[in-house]
Amino acid sequence: MERRLYDHVKELLIEELAGSPPGQRLPSRAALAERFGVNRTTVERAVSELIGEGLLYARDKSGTYTTGRLPAARHAEGGRRWAVVIPDIQHDTYPGIIRGIQDTAGGRGIDVILSNTDNSVRRQTACLERFLEGGTDGIILIPAVYEGTDLRPLMRILERRVPLVLCNREVPGIQAPVVKSDNFLGGKLAVRHLVSTGRRRIAYVSPPIYQTSAERYQGYLAALAENGLEQDPSLVSFACAPGEPENALRAVTRLLQRRADGVFCFNDAAACVVYDAAARLGRKVGRELAVVGYDNTPLCESFRPKLTTVDFRTYEVGRRAAELICAMTEGDESARRRSVVVEPSLIVRESTPG
């Protein structure tokens, strides 16, 4: 009988929550018990389960509040949905991550809504707020690059226990699962391979430094050290900024003039700049100059010679992020503290002759 009572109270509360704005304070347990004609123990059990399901959240000595999340089966669209917030929907690495997420979600009947931030923290905050207020069963965020992240919406997401997974990089101050490729290992794989082809003056070409580029740079330094090669600061450039092709080309041209015989590029797009600079100087990639990219995008096959690269394994990153959201939705509390590091692999092509 008690089981039927607290289930019934849960259903009544869910009906009320469906029309309540986020952050609305619930009446006291005594008031709810009187309203529903049950004892306070029954109300407490019903409310506790709703907190565990992410529909309510409690504040110490303040009360219990609505999260704004509709029950999974009661979205206006008639099914469950996840929000995926990314910096640049046209960036070569993100389609693979999205595909991994969508394949996993689609197999469970879950819709995926994409939102693009253009690497703007302001737009990222607006997207997160919109999804939080509108109701979602999970959020996967690839944080904006270069700007400090606004922690407020992320803190509210965690407070309301909406499943949240970060992809590609952490956000300092936010305790949420992270799924990322091992950028440090990827950097080591690239430079070890260049060393194995006989290269000794190995450069690193990157956009302005941020978490991912710094991790790949640390792998570059580690591989040089383990092979007894001295790091030359003049062979490092962080000038390949997106949207500044002329500045990037000038910087890389200067770098190649310093007798670099191998180049590790932060990504395959940076390798385009290296190829252009090498052509300007009359240096042959795949002969006197070896080049390794990163991300294994479709660009690699279009290069002449075809580009050796590190495979980020984007699909696997997306798939593992989606699996963490599923685990949290199904009540696995350990998933809220679990992070995943995906191991990259080297794809050898024509730009690094042995």
Rank of each mutant, 00 (worst) to 15 (best):
A225T: 13
A214D: 08
V285R: 04
D268W: 04
E215P: 05
A225P: 02
G282T: 09
N247K: 15
A278L: 11
R254A: 15
A222C: 05
R201H: 04
S213D: 02
E244V: 08
A278R: 07
A260G: 12
D261Q: 12
L255A: 05
G262W: 07
A269S: 11
R287W: 07
P242R: 10
P208C: 08
V236D: 03
A279G: 13
A269Y: 08
S213I: 03
F266E: 02
V205Y: 03
L224C: 02
A241E: 14
G198Q: 03
K284A: 15
T197L: 05
L256Y: 09
E301I: 07
S206W: 02
C240M: 10
L229Y: 01
E244K: 14
A290N: 09
P298M: 04
A251L: 09
A290L: 08
I202K: 04
P245D: 09
P208V: 02
N296R: 02
Q218L: 14
S213H: 00
V274E: 06
V292Y: 05
I202A: 05
R200M: 06
L299Y: 14
E230R: 15
P233K: 11
Y204P: 02
N296F: 01
A241K: 13
P207L: 06
D276S: 14
E301T: 12
L299T: 08
G198M: 06
V291C: 08
R254D: 15
V274I: 14
K284I: 14
V252F: 08
E226W: 05
A203Q: 01
T212I: 13
F264D: 04
A223V: 07
L229H: 03
